[in-house]
């Protein structure tokens, strides 16, 4: 469904991604693992068009999307939830959802505020509240909910567990499982292997901008050498 071929990306003079190739199949949950600065966020930003790649190709559903503007990429059915959530804190919960709302897409279920609230019941209780007054966990849920309002077929989640309490992380894992069972494809980045192994089918490990490891998540979790070599555990 999504494939990256030989992607290179730079910030100014710093080479962030080198020759990254990866594939995400329809209905899969794939995780990108790696340390701070390994290039996980950059990969997701490049896919979304927020940081146009230096070279390489990105295909989504057979169409080439690198070089397109972020809003065009979003309209093709890619939903992006950034690392720092980037909630519109001047807006209420409902208004945040409104910003994310897009027209219905063929062959994709339509998300409404009601459906989103069913997935994240906490949000329903605070629909008129200003997003500034929400906890970190609630903001993370709102960020996902807002992106779902665009009826994406593939969801890009950048470190969804970061800075969240264990209880909320568990809830987040359940929500991602729920989305998967509804047929959504997910590519997420993570540092938390425990969380990743709960939600993902397959994993890619990034180190210094290169893919160092790929395989089923269970394999990685059971391979102490690989864990020690590439992850901070």
């Amino acid at each position: 469904m999504l494939s990256l071929r030989n992607l290179h990306a730079c910030y100014g003079q710093a080479h962030i991604l080198a020759d990254v190739s990866l594939d995400v199949g329809a209905g899969e949950v794939v995780v990108l693992l790696g340390r701070n600065g390994a290039g996980k966020s950059t990969t997701l930003k490049s896919i979304m068009g927020l940081l146009p790649p230096h070279s390489g190709e990105i295909h989504f559903d057979g169409a080439r999307i690198d070089g397109k503007a972020p809003h065009d990429i979003a309209r093709l059915g890619l939903g992006y939830v950034p690392e720092d959530r980037r909630i519109f804190t001047d807006l209420t919960v409902e208004e945040n959802l409104e910003v994310g709302r897009q027209a219905e897409r063929a062959k994709t279920p339509l998300w409404t505020p009601e459906r989103v609230f069913a997935l994240f019941p906490n949000l329903a209780e605070m629909r008129h509240r200003s997003a500034a007054q929400m906890s970190g966990g609630e903001q993370q849920m709102l960020a996902i909910a807002r992106t779902l309002m665009g009826n994406p077929r593939l969801l890009l989640l950048d470190e969804p567990s970061e800075g969240l309490a264990p209880v909320i992380i568990a809830q987040m894992a359940r929500s991602i499982g729920e989305l998967k069972s509804q047929g959504l494809t997910v590519l997420l980045s993570e540092q938390n292997l425990h969380f990743a192994s709960q939600v993902a089918d397959r994993a890619y490990v990034l180190e210094k901008g290169r893919i160092r490891y790929q395989g089923a998540i269970t394999e990685l979790a059971n391979d102490p050498d690989a864990r020690r070599a590439y992850l901070s555990v």
């Binding site: 927020l50 503007a69 809003h71 980037r86 519109f88 001047d90 807006l91 910003v99 994310g100």
Partner: peptide, 23 residues
């Protein structure tokens, strides 16, 4: 909706674009 988009873009226009709004 136009007004909500204006307020959202005032805070973070890149995010608004990533949500599919033509800047």
């Amino acid at each position: 909706r136009f007004g909500i988009l204006i307020r959202a873009a005032t805070q973070d226009r890149e995010m608004v674009a990533a949500l599919g709004v033509n800047q």
